[in-house]
């Protein structure tokens, strides 16, 4: 089966992103496909490359990045939700005249159309959030 995952909560405060990650990992191991992982609402904060969790805890962003690298996952951060929350990649920081960027290169910024298209193309769209 082909899944699109929608992640609506940020890292650590909520378990939603962890649960989505565990689901994605298990589904891929079983031979299913992930069409897209879309990060929305506070979920965009999962894409920060600047988080420094304690060494004995999981690093959610790096977990996603490693899984994406292994399986060539398409991980998309909603641009409107990201901009509200100060999440920028280098291109966007340049365009907006900001002096820093914080989005991990494993993620790409795009529009909400990518979520709707993910719902159309996948067999199932699963939401992880509250």
């Amino acid at each position: 089966m082909n899944f699109t995952l929608l992640i609506n909560e940020g890292p650590y405060q909520h378990q939603a992103s962890d649960t989505a990650y565990q689901f994605a990992k298990a589904a891929l191991e079983k031979g299913h496909e992930i069409y897209r992982v879309f990060f929305y609402n506070d979920g965009v904060n999962n894409a920060t490359r600047l988080a420094i969790p304690p060494q004995d805890d999981r690093n959610i962003t790096e977990n996603w990045a490693a899984l994406a690298k292994e399986h060539e996952l398409d991980m998309v951060v909603c641009i409107a939700a990201a901009q509200r929350r100060g999440m920028l990649d280098a291109d966007e920081a340049g365009r907006q005249g900001k002096d820093a960027d914080n989005i991990h290169p494993a993620f790409r910024i795009s529009g909400l159309g990518q979520l709707v298209e993910g719902g159309i193309q996948a067999d199932r769209l699963l939401t992880f959030g509250d």
């Binding site: 929305y40 409107a80 939700a81 529009g111 909400l112 159309g113 709707v116 298209e117």
Partner: peptide, 15 residues
């Protein structure tokens, strides 16, 4: 608010 933003975008996909 952010749900409404998805709804408005979805209208462009003829679903």
């Amino acid at each position: 608010l952010e749900s409404l933003e998805v709804v408005l975008i979805s209208a462009a996909f003829d679903q």
